[in-house]
Simulated scan of single mutants.
Amino acid sequence: MSTDSGAGDEDAAITLYRLHGCPYCERIVRRLERYGIPYRSRFVAGEHSRRDAVAREAGTRSVPVVVDHERGVTMPESSRILEYLERTYGDGGPTERSDSDGMELIEFPPAEHPTVGETAPEFTRPLVSAAYWEDTSLSTLVEREGPVLLVFYPLNWGGKSVYWWGEIRDRSWHEDLTVVGVGIGQPFDHQRFIERHGLENALYSDPGNGVAERYGVVHDLDGMTGVSEPRPATFLIGPERTIDHVWIADEWPPSPPYDEIESNWK
């Protein structure tokens, strides 16, 4: 039902701006095809700076974006798009709880986490860059670098983590503030991950997942007793370690609201 960018049915009801290999875009493709909705694909470049067409259309350089020409609706963010398609073209009921690979979506329980206006819990862990690592406290980092975005993320080499960090890298968040990941990888594993994916930010090494526990974002892995990883989450931390914004994933795989997170410093 789809045509490639620049070709095919110009009168299709839906235009889908998408990126090759993007799992969130594939979720939208599966839903469009399930409902038999004619759509036209517009593939965007990997670099955000080259996504002028979708930026003009939707005011964002992130994908997926759906444009419903018949209804005059432009919709970013995969979770919002799925809800819109279900409400408009489906049976109006809850969206199917599966991801682009047909895997069941896992809903996380409510998290008891620090909230906006509270002081971010202090911690010290090895802070890993491409060149070296050293023990660094959060308070030292905030005092030295200014606002810090803590990004809690799951295992380094999982597909969702790779895509998430690629999106953060391509959005150049590191140019506006200090972006620091928190994951359970050992320092040498973090270093390989940074080098392999060309990340511009450092990663805290927290193999025991203790920092995630302090922030209330621990996710116990199914079938692996005593093993946990962070639930995907972001905490924007300002002067005096005051929390200015929080996003916590409520399901896996997550759909981070990049534009919402970014709007807090843009």
Rank of each mutant, 00 (worst) to 15 (best):
Y35C: 05
A53G: 00
S78V: 11
F43S: 11
N201Q: 08
R144Q: 14
F108W: 04
S263W: 00
V63M: 06
P94E: 13
T74S: 11
S129R: 02
W165L: 14
F235L: 08
R241I: 03
P109L: 09
R169Q: 09
A131E: 15
P187L: 07
E86G: 01
E143F: 01
T140Y: 04
L82C: 01
S129H: 07
K160L: 12
P126M: 12
G6F: 05
V44I: 15
L19T: 04
R125E: 12
R97G: 05
F152I: 10
G198M: 06
K160I: 15
M1Q: 05
G238H: 10
R87H: 08
Y163W: 09
W157R: 13
D170Y: 01
R214D: 14
E26W: 03
Q191V: 06
L177Q: 12
T178K: 07
G210M: 03
T124W: 03
G210V: 02
G208Q: 10
I168C: 06
D9Q: 09
G223R: 04
W265R: 11
D9W: 02
V179D: 11
A45G: 01
T242R: 15
S79M: 11
A130M: 08
E33K: 12
E134A: 15
S161Y: 02
G6Y: 05
G92L: 01
A53Q: 13
G90N: 12
E213G: 09
G223P: 06
V67Q: 03
R42Q: 09
T234N: 08
S129Q: 05
W164F: 12
Y17N: 11
N264H: 15
P254E: 14
G238I: 07
R31E: 14
P257Y: 03
D170V: 04
R18E: 14
E262R: 13
D176Y: 08
H113K: 10
I237G: 10
A202Y: 00
P121Y: 03
D244W: 00
S100C: 15
E122M: 09
Q186M: 15
F188K: 10
G36P: 08
S255I: 03
G238S: 11
A12W: 02
E83M: 08
R80S: 15
P121S: 02
E112S: 13
T124D: 05
P76L: 01
R171H: 13
P23Q: 12
A212M: 07
F123K: 09
D68M: 10
V162L: 14
V67M: 03
S172T: 05
P23N: 08
Y24Q: 12
R80L: 13
E134R: 13
P76Y: 00
G159M: 06
D222K: 10
G158I: 08
A12S: 15
F193N: 03
R61A: 11
W165E: 10
F152T: 11
T136W: 05
R169Y: 06
N264A: 03
D9N: 15
S255C: 04
Y132I: 04
T234A: 08
R125N: 04
P147H: 05
S137E: 06
S98E: 15
